[in-house]
Design a protein around this nucleic acid. Structure first.
Length: 298
DNA sequence: GTTCAGGTGTCCA
DNA sequence: TGGACACCTGAA
């Protein structure tokens, strides 16, 4: 792959941690320090040596980096204050931040996040990735080939492209009972019931309610979309993993209602709740923290 | 064979 | 208003 652009002196950037923290699905690890990332209708390879502040992006140009990837990777946000503030909360946060200090919250495409997190419900991450690959292969258009990869990659289908899919088509992509949800999302976006670009400036509760008019979008999926596409950092998407971690760390392992966890996160982490969620999720999942709690309670 | 996975819609008290 | 329960699918 040619056309390499080097990013130098990037702090709080670890490509492995960024991609493995559960916010993005269309990537592959291709070697120890290299990842292939399919996003923004591009295919790039990213290579970063351990603990290096230099990041090599292949198959791109300086102007693309300026126009697309700087924003996508949120390079201009200074994570120094964010990590320092969160680490000062308590010793667990300090550990979580230290463990995932190279995490950044990406600025991804709202439509792709909408479909991705509809698919994500009640699925494991490898399965989510497989379903999204099926969908892109079937309904996206081919993008540039990669040397020696022997595989064609496809862009994420637009609402119009995906609206061609029948329920049967979608079930062939192994999305199961989520097929009608995807069709409803296509329809509401295409007919203007939900205008994704409007959500950037909409009050947070209104934006969330708007997303939840789509079938298959509940509070957790809406929070993920608003955090990972719209950078609404005050949100704290609460899934089974993060629920266990919060219960384990801050509620003595007791079963706590969703609302109570959200209330706690909002009061304790404030505007940084979304970042805290990412650090805790990554820390909790990589270390399988409190994985047994739900079993013991049952 | 059973259970569980980054939840949500539906039904019923 | 809130608590069960089912739901595609496939991996463990």
């Amino acid at each position: 792959m040619n056309n390499m652009v080097m990013l130098n002196h990037v702090s709080h950037f670890n490509i492995g941690q960024i991609l493995e923290s559960g916010q993005v699905f269309r990537f592959e690890k291709i070697s120890d320090h290299s990842y292939l990332l399919n996003a923004k209708q591009k295919l790039i390879k990213i290579t970063q040596q351990p603990d290096s502040s230099s990041v090599a992006i292949y198959n791109t140009t300086a102007s693309e980096v300026e126009e697309i990837w700087m924003n996508y990777f949120d390079i201009n946000t200074n994570y120094e204050n964010i990590t320092a503030t969160l680490a000062a909360k308590d010793e667990w946060m300090a550990k979580a931040v230290e463990f995932g200090k190279g995490i950044r919250i990406l600025r991804q495409d709202p439509w792709e996040m909408l479909i991705s997190f509809i698919v994500s419900q009640n699925k494991s991450i490898p399965h989510i990735k497989a379903c999204l690959k099926n969908i892109t292969n079937k309904f996206g258009f081919p993008i540039n080939e990669v040397d020696g990869m022997g595989e064609h990659y496809h862009s994420f289908p637009t609402p119009k492209e995906l609206s061609r899919a029948t329920e049967e088509d979608l079930r062939e992509c192994k999305v199961g009972f989520r097929a009608p949800y995807i069709m409803d999302a296509c329809q509401k976006v295409l007919n203007g019931d939900v205008i994704l670009n409007d959500l950037y400036i909409m009050p947070i509760e209104e934006a969330k309610a708007k997303l939840m008019t789509i079938k298959g979008v509940g509070p957790k999926v809406a929070d993920c979309i608003l955090l990972f596409a719209y950078s609404r950092m005050e949100l704290f998407p609460t899934d089974v993993w993060i629920k266990r971690v919060i219960e384990g760390l801050y509620f003595e392992g007791k079963d706590v209602k969703l609302e109570e966890i959200q209330k706690f996160a909002s009061e304790y982490f404030g505007e940084l709740a979304g970042y805290a969620q990412q650090y805790l999720f990554f820390y909790g999942r990589e270390n399988a923290l409190f994985k047994d709690i739900s079993k013991k309670k049952a």
